Amino acid sequence: MTRLTICIPTRNRQIYAMDAVRHMLASPRDDFEILIGDNSDDAAPLADFVKEINDSRLRRLPPEDKPLSLRSNWERMPPHARGEWVSFIGDDDYLDPELCEALRVASDRVPSVDAFSWGRSYYVWPEARPLPQITKIPTGSHLIHMEKKDLMRKMFFWEGAKDRPACPFGVYHGALKKDLMERIRDAFSNRYFEHPNVDYDSNCKTVMMADACIYWERPLSVFGSCSASNSAGLGDKKLGAERLKTFREENDGELEAKDFPFPIELGLTASVAHTIEWLKQRYGIELNGWEEGFISACAGDCESQSDRTGFNEKKADYAAAIRTWGGDKALKLFNPVYRYRADIPKFMGHAEGHLNFDMAIGNAQTAAEYYKIIDGMLFPVRLLESRLSEG
């Protein structure tokens, strides 16, 4: 039985996808498969790679006659998934096939589970990391049944959000049962992914449609960021504008909600908000009481800036949008504070359930190599069932 399909959509970044695949296929497990959605201009590199690997656990969807939007490339993949569960990652990311074991244990404990997620870990590839960076990983290993009402508040009311909704459930760096994905498609315009911001589109609908959401504190994947990734543009205004321009040109869906005066160029918070507001407008969902949480997240987006000029510019732009949207009453709730201190060394060590350390640990050169290092620090996946039995 194929328990899990790992989907890797990619466009002209074949070398990153190949590295992730090689490391995943080193696993002895036979209950997962990898499906590559190749949207590249040149089909040969990945076609040759799949042929050379010659592993039945690896399949590839070839490029179509013309390049697809990111949304359309994601959309064509779930129908080809053979797994009971489906997970998406980026081509510069990594996912541990041992997720299959966690899914097995979670399903045994909670038979109704149809959405599963795990702790976060982040890695910037060396070519995109000119300066040392401190990263952190959660060190807990509890398996937690999350209440739907709490997740709804986190997702749609921005409860506890720092710069984005604190809701980790969706198909991107999460796993959804194929049946849940089919129900989402049937309920929302016969598409798996409607909004071009596909990951948050999935998060919104997962929270709305899932029967049971289980979260494991232990990381099982790595969010990678190479020099060509969109996430690399978050810290560089010029680069971010270029990436967004390309995204707009290749997009085939509606990016912005109507009458919501927050340009997505403002940053991550504005972009996510447009996804949520677009969905609410599309399906006539009316909510009250989310505004303060959103404004707080806008402040958090500003506070992520590491230089004073960037902070001041972003603060002014958000303030203008908030005043247009909610007037002076809303603006009074917007109080970002510049917090970056270059003169204070970044903390390394264990605090508040996280281990903080240099991202260059072990001289890892890829997301997969980085995961191998942190995997040795974390609670062994193979012991999850016995730990729960003891509890």
Rank of each mutant, 00 (worst) to 15 (best):
318 Y>W: 09
173 H>E: 00
294 F>Y: 15
61 L>I: 10
370 Y>L: 01
125 W>G: 02
105 V>L: 07
59 R>N: 11
165 P>G: 12
26 A>W: 05
361 I>K: 09
23 H>M: 07
367 A>Q: 08
280 K>M: 15
192 Y>E: 00
186 D>K: 13
33 E>H: 07
341 R>M: 02
305 Q>H: 00
182 E>V: 06
150 D>N: 08
93 D>R: 09
379 F>I: 00
158 W>P: 03
62 P>C: 13
288 N>Y: 14
138 P>M: 07
226 C>N: 14
15 I>P: 04
292 E>F: 08
206 T>V: 12
42 D>S: 09
68 L>F: 06
350 H>I: 04
8 I>C: 13
131 L>K: 15
384 L>A: 08
198 V>T: 09
135 T>I: 11
84 E>T: 11
142 H>N: 12
111 P>E: 09
317 D>C: 11
63 P>N: 10
294 F>P: 11
135 T>S: 03
326 G>Q: 07
87 S>L: 11
71 R>D: 00
212 A>T: 15
117 S>N: 15
70 L>S: 01
65 D>S: 14
206 T>A: 11
257 A>Q: 11
258 K>V: 09
387 R>S: 06
177 K>F: 05
209 M>Y: 13
63 P>H: 08
185 R>W: 02
64 E>I: 12
166 A>C: 13
247 F>E: 10
368 A>C: 03
129 R>Q: 14
302 C>G: 00
270 A>N: 05
116 F>I: 14
46 L>V: 07
83 G>Y: 10
243 R>P: 03
218 R>D: 02
366 T>L: 09
290 W>R: 15
243 R>D: 04
390 E>H: 05
116 F>K: 12
367 A>W: 10
10 T>W: 04
70 L>C: 00
352 E>A: 08
373 I>T: 12
252 D>Q: 07
129 R>E: 12
222 V>K: 04
143 L>A: 01
179 D>C: 00
123 Y>N: 04
332 K>S: 13
208 M>V: 13
221 S>R: 07
28 P>D: 06
187 A>S: 15
368 A>P: 04
359 M>K: 11
84 E>S: 12
54 N>G: 15
42 D>Y: 05
118 W>E: 12
86 V>K: 13
88 F>P: 04
244 L>E: 14
324 T>Q: 15
323 R>Y: 04
391 G>D: 06
